[in-house]
Write a protein that binds this DNA or RNA. Sequence first.
DNA 1: CTTGGGGTCGAACGTTCGTTTGAACGCGAA
DNA 2: TTCGCGTTCAAACGAACGTTCGACCCCAAG
Lengths: 219, 219
Amino acid sequence: MTDPLLQDAAETEEAQAATKQAVFNAAERLFALHGFQNVSVRDITAEAGVNLASVNYHFGSKDALLFEIFRRRTSELNRERARMLHEATSRHGGKPPVRDILECYFAPPMRWAAPDNDRRISMQFIIRARSEGTAEMREVLKTDVSHLERFAGALMAARPDLPKEDVYWRLHFVLGMVHNNRFAEFDRLHHLSGGLTREGDVEALLRRMLDFAEAGFLA
Amino acid sequence: MTDPLLQDAAETEEAQAATKQAVFNAAERLFALHGFQNVSVRDITAEAGVNLASVNYHFGSKDALLFEIFRRRTSELNRERARMLHEATSRHGGKPPVRDILECYFAPPMRWAAPDNDRRISMQFIIRARSEGTAEMREVLKTDVSHLERFAGALMAARPDLPKEDVYWRLHFVLGMVHNNRFAEFDRLHHLSGGLTREGDVEALLRRMLDFAEAGFLA
DNA sequence: CTTGGGGTCGAACGTTCGTTTGAACGCGAA
DNA sequence: TTCGCGTTCAAACGAACGTTCGACCCCAAG
């Protein structure tokens, strides 16, 4: 609990076994780097320096471990987005402009993914979960859209003249912009542009994204 | 060769064995529907109605089969894009406007993915290959950017005032919009909007995408 | 000291996987 | 007819996987 290595000390369950934490962290890291199917329980326990049976003892199964990481990280990310949106709403007297709304959605994942951020690996995990997750995770992604509803509502309030249908579609396009920010895509872009594009300056990239998305939304 | 079942009669290799074609089609279908890792060689050969050893005999390995499907479909798609861009270029006297350039990139995958199109399953395969492909396929995706260079060049010509760096980044955003058009995302959006958004009308969706992307590019 | 239970350990289980093997088959050429 | 070759077949191989098992360890409660 007072161990500085435990990044997630503030847990709902209080006294996490050190083994469980080690498995959690190792699994998140390996899954993020190599994908779910390409990482075995043996890889995880070896990386964590624990016994092979630890995964099934503490989490029930490999899939359940995966799901628990996914659930924790996505809820943290969406909570941060909701917090920013709430703040922007009160800052603008209940009706923030399009650009500010989009920033609340863009900024958290972008900043998490910054090269020097501890959460970078968590962000990479979430990105991978979107396309390689289990059926259970995909069901959650499809069904649990409560956090998106907040943003859709805010956007409709910011552009009451636009038909709701258009707001949803443009939100869809915006989601695509965010989800495409994988490391592999940055590499490809870097290769294409001959090294002209650099992902180092997160805030500058965030500004670029907002310029593009805001213009698209106000079209 | 005159068999109407052979969709890809015009091949570089002339006399394809019926078994090889059956394996190719079954593999593409199953991979597109369930993902690479979730489909076994036994599943493929059972679906194709051929012997288990056929995959290794005709393609060398499961990975090689996967790569051959990937190579064929992506080259077909990019050839179609290049054809449209070439036509648009000559139609506009060498310098097509942004919207027309983007349409050349958007239209082929969108139309392939239309519910009544035979290529729908191929498009789904390509989409899956982007995130679940083997290391070899990812290397091709990253390295082979020649087809993107054509579009980057056309966009720079259409907006010579914009710094090249910005063109690349905005192209990156546009790619995100296209790549996000997976069936799962449409389902999610449909769920979020309460059935308001329908993907049935491809041309209408294409117009929406162009409205958004064009505005973003002209910002 | 004794007891009990949460945690860890090495070892194994049963399944599934991609691939290989060697025999059999079909058919045009010699 | 006989040969040769491309193709198909049933069967098996060896490896890797997620999971389970029973013994063992530690430490606090009785």
